[in-house]
């Protein structure tokens, strides 16, 4: 079983979580694991760009407001690099008007914290074209 688990883990699609908030970085990987995805967390966009995840991640769960490079900044940067990863934005802001704008610019979804596990699963599946 241990072996099966590892094999399966290597086959799992990699989802990267980028958020400066500890609570989010601590909680999301377990939930994503329950959904059957692999997860790696970064506390800033710069940290993510410096990692090998840029080439491996199949989906980004990306906080909008972060010190330094913001979520939308990273989205633009990736586009410039020709590395367009499906992005699910998450935000603690209550400003609902950002959602349509972000989706218009190519985001899969924009979730407002706190969000339910099902809405997250739907968004990730949608990003990975699983359903």
């Amino acid at each position: 079983m241990e072996l099966r688990h590892e094999r399966r883990a290597s086959e799992r699609p990699l989802v990267s979580v980028i958020d400066d908030d500890d609570s989010v970085r601590d909680s999301l990987p377990d939930l994503l694991g329950e959904f059957g995805f692999a997860a790696r967390t970064f506390s800033s966009a710069e940290e993510f760009l410096a990692s090998d995840c840029v080439d491996q991640a199949r989906c980004l769960i990306l906080d909008i407001a972060m010190p330094g490079m913001t979520g939308p900044d990273l989205q633009r940067e990736l586009k410039l690099r020709g590395r367009e990863i499906p992005i699910i934005f998450i935000t603690a802001s209550t400003d609902q008007t950002v959602r349509p704008r972000l989706i218009e610019r190519g985001a899969i979804e924009c979730l407002f914290k706190p969000f339910s596990d099902t809405s997250l699963l739907e968004a990730v599946n949608s990003a990975l074209h699983l359903k």
Partner: peptide
């Protein structure tokens, strides 16, 4: 919302 988000997810 930050801690709430953590609570819900956890």
């Amino acid at each position: 919302n930050q801690p709430l988000s953590g609570i819900v997810t956890n």
